[in-house]
Structure formats: structure tokens, C-alpha cells
Design a protein around this nucleic acid. Sequence first.
DNA 1: ACCTGAACACCGTTCAAGT
DNA 2: ACCTGAACACCGTTCAAGT
Lengths: 236, 236
Amino acid sequence: MSEGNVRRRATRAARAPLSRAEVVEVALRYVDEHGLDALTMRALATQMGVYPTALYWHMGDKAQLVAAVSAKVLEDIVLPSGHDMRWDDWLSTVALSCRDAMRRHPNLAPVIGSQLAVTTTALPLVERVIDVLERAGFTGQTLIEVYNTVIGFVLGWVTLELSQGPAEGNDEWQQEYEAQLRSANPTAYPALTRNLDLLANNAFLVRWDSGRDRPMDLSFETALDVLIRGLRAKRE
Amino acid sequence: MSEGNVRRRATRAARAPLSRAEVVEVALRYVDEHGLDALTMRALATQMGVYPTALYWHMGDKAQLVAAVSAKVLEDIVLPSGHDMRWDDWLSTVALSCRDAMRRHPNLAPVIGSQLAVTTTALPLVERVIDVLERAGFTGQTLIEVYNTVIGFVLGWVTLELSQGPAEGNDEWQQEYEAQLRSANPTAYPALTRNLDLLANNAFLVRWDSGRDRPMDLSFETALDVLIRGLRAKRE
DNA sequence: ACCTGAACACCGTTCAAGT
DNA sequence: ACCTGAACACCGTTCAAGT
């Protein structure tokens, strides 16, 4: 306990004052390494050689910290240059780029999917997507709806892909579920039974490994293809 | 403290033993009423007139409880009868029905989006979607990919729609964000500036009210339309 | 089998105080 | 302005014990 204090002091001797940006940075790395549940005001404080209450001065409360950290993930999205590409190619590229950014910080996927995430860090993405959809011919109210279609699809889909089961370490429930799935009544579930080997652990709602370990690359590409084809048809 | 025990005892006098199903039921209602953060092993135990540790006997730990509760939301999805409908109409109906089910339990949206949710409760949905996609002409590996396209789109999109900002009660950050948004540099963000009035609080990443309070009905319908058109094109 | 009761090692957050 | 230090009211979870 006093030992902890000593180490803390040692690490932080003659140190520049904390900044909000620095706290968020360290928190992001911490979550990447130790998981979202391990992100604790106290743990982060210890990591930074500071008292927990110091974080409150910079960040407000924990909810705001988490919001700031999740916003930083979207900052990482690489936006292709653009005006030399067709609108549909550009959209595909940026969708894959969003997915990559989220895959780089899978522990934050739940937060990205469920947090409003209003920050100026996302504005470049918004600007470019709106721009390219205008070039595709969408305007006014339809433009907004199509924008929401695209963003909701990409961010939502990948959130689901990266979702996890309870207790990642525990694989008893995995085997139990697989057994339960394979013994499903064939007359009650004929279509499922017909395709069981293809579905098992490969399809949403009937898989036990997360997209973290088992990327759903082909499905995402198909989803993207469906999206683009749908948008083309919508333009008519 | 001993007062608490007395009330607990009173509520639960001559009571049938707890069942797993009952715990999950009460937990779902509790989350609907008080929010996900308020769901605590201790609070739920008090609600049920029982010691916290009694829950552990039935549910395992909290992660498993939450998983079971979120699975129950999917149980609520109304599946239209089917074989008298065209595949595309059926898919639209069931997508709207999924969204309705999630909107009935908005506090659980973050969990549905981010939890693997492997339970037999989702099997009817899986069966029917697979069945209808086969009828639409998809088979084998493509069938799986298209299935993932559909499920990922619907569940993911609605998860995003129902997402919330940090500290729901606090509306300082909302005003602050709106001000920040409206003062965005017009030369850096021309497309955004052109459509600012349409976008503000209506589009993903630039809204401050949750889809709980501000349903994105039109956008979801458009998204659905794009999905269906895309699937039609994919069949060719 | 099902639950009580006590205990442990944590949390987030507030508030006064230092510099 | 920025941080320490102590304190408060909680958590989830384990384990022994009761019936």
C-alpha cells in the first residue's frame, strides 16, 4: 500500500502535468492490452503514476473517459484521397478501412456500437461520406437516409462481428452450446439442419468464437457488395 | 440493515424456490425499468427478496446473467407465418419486427450488439431466415454469407440507432457539441456545411439524442430498402 | 438442492486540503 | 491550475455453514 505510493512517486518524479489527451492515449493502450473490464479509474491512475482523483480533474467521470477513448478509435480510420475514384469504389475502400480500424481495437467495439460518439474526431469521415454520396447523386432528405444506411451498416455490422461471449476464458459453455446446436430437432429446424455444418461457428447467432479470433472476411465482403448494389439500384 | 432482512423475509415468506427462468425474467424487467448500470447482483437479489449469493447458485456469475437476459430479448421477435409471402416482403417484415423487439428493451441494445448471444432462443429466427433465403435462391457458402449480411445489418444497425451518450441526464455536452458542430470550418467541411441543418441530430456521428427518444424510422426503412434491392441484384 | 451470512478485495466518486 | 489523501457508499465473488 505505502509500497504502491513509493513506486508511483518514483515513476512520476519531475514530470510534466497530465493532459487530457495523454490520459486518453494511455487509456486506449491500456484497454487494447488488458481489456475493457480492466479499465478502472484506479488502475489507470496507477498506470500513470497518479492518484485516481487526478483523472477526475482532467476527464470528468468514467463515462466521459470511455467516450473519449472510443472516439479515438474512429480517428484511426484511413480515408482514401478520393476524387480520382468512382463513388462505389471509394465507399468500399472506406468501409474496409473502418473495419480495419475497429479490428485494431477490438476491446472497444462494444463501446463504439453502443455509444453515441459525438466528437469532432469523426467529422472528416462524415464530410467525405456525405461528399461522395452527393457525387453519387443523392440529395436532401434522401442523402441523410442513405448516409445513415451506410454508416449504420458498417459500424453496426463490425460491432456484431467483434462481439464476445460471457467469460472469454471459459470454454465449457462453447462445447455445451455446440452439443445443443447439433442435437437440434431436424423436423423443427429443417433448414438449419440442412446447413448445419456451414452455419456452425460461422454465422451470427450460431457461432461461439468471436470475430476477433475468427474474422468473417467473406461475409463482410458480401455484405458490402449487397450494400453497394442496393445503393446503385436506389439511384436508378 | 436488519430492517432490510426483515422486509426481505416478509416478501418471501413461504415462497417456492427460485428458478433460473424466474431470475432472468425479473432481471429483464429490472433493466427495462432502471437501466443496465443499475442491474447489480445485490440489487436484483434485494428485488427478489433473497441474498445475492442465492443468485450465484442459479445463474453462475453476472456475465452469464446478462447473457441470458439479452437472449430473452431475441425471444420476443414475432416471426410472420411466411409461406404465403414473397421472400423480400417476409425479410422486410421480420427486420421491422427485430427492430421493434429491440426497441421494447432499449437498455439492452448495447449488450445485444456486443454479446455473442448463442442460445437456443434464437434458433427459430435463424431457421426461418435461412429458409427464406434458400427460397430466394441462395445456397451453400453464399447462403451463409448472405445470412450474415442480413442479420449483421439488422441487429447492428439498430444497436447503433439505440446507442447513448455518456451521462444521459447531463445535457451540457449536447449543447457544447452542437455549438462545436455549427462552428465547423466551412472550407474544411464544405459538404457537411451544405447539409448541416439536415444532418444535425439526425445522422449517425453527428447527433446528440439517442434513437430511443428520436427514432430513425425513415433511415431504417431506406436501409432496409437498400438491403433488399442489393439482395435482389445479388441473385441476378 | 437451495439458501443464509459473513467476509474479501475491489470499485467510482466526493470533498477538503495542499502547492 | 493541478494534484494528494482520506473517506463513503457501493460492487462482484468466494466460502463455510445451515436446512
